[in-house]
Amino acid sequence: MNVNDIQIVLTASLVTLACVIPGCFLVLRRMTMFGDAISHAVLPGIVAAFLFSGSLNGIAMIIGASLTGLLVTLLIELIQKKMRISPDASIGITYTFLFAIGVIMVSLLSNQTDLDQECVLYGDITLVPLDLGMWGIPRQIWIASILDIVLIITLLVGYRGLWVSTFDPSFAAATGIATVFWHYLLMGMVSLSTVTAFESVGAIMVIALLTGPAATAALFARSLPRMLVIASISGIISCILGYILATILDASIAGAIAVMNGLLFFISLLIRKFIRN
């Protein structure tokens, strides 16, 4: 275990935490498809931000991703409500469309810049220790930590609104809570976690972090705060085990972490079945 290992596992854990927070709400709302949609559809936004600012980090990218994230949410709602198309179809069509535009943009650009398809789709967490930021701490760790703090503050401040509008939207709306606002806030949070996860695990694997730990936690948790804690712990365990697995097999770290998240879920499912019988 050297500094590099620790930095990579730490990055993965911070990224996981960012995904777990909105992920729990997505799972409870049965809206994980939205997570998948946003994590893919932000791609053109990220590329546009890259063109605009010339780098794959910082404020421009966060703004680009958040705006596209909200745009997808809006588009999905519009298609579903106005055109009377089923939710899954409207989600499927919207995000693959935007994602495909992003892929085309990336492939056009990859000749001229260091943005390539491989890195956008799969990320590369092994590069984390190479790209140092302030005080010699990797830039990725900085970004992930700051976004984690933003997400945690949003969670704490918005907790009541998020939970009531998730549990009983009709009651929430009847008592005057703006459920639409909380829906968009949640989608904004998903966009932020996507940005956090983008460079390290790539667009395809984000959904594993959004749903895996939350689904595992949903099996056991008796309250929402506990669900958030259990999901975080299970997600971090997956990061550690996944990193070990990847090192042994000399395989993709992000892939191994996603596999571990899946494994933990299935094991939990068995354990729960065992407990109940």
Partner: peptide
């Protein structure tokens, strides 16, 4: 609301749900 409109498989306790009744007067914060 009609009871069936809610997902009762939700990680919340009975008193959590009843406390929601206080939110209109408490506000969100």
């Amino acid at each position: 609301p009609q009871r069936q409109t809610i997902d009762w498989d939700f990680p919340a306790s009975v008193s959590d749900v009843v406390m929601m009744g206080r939110y209109p007067s408490l506000g969100l914060f």
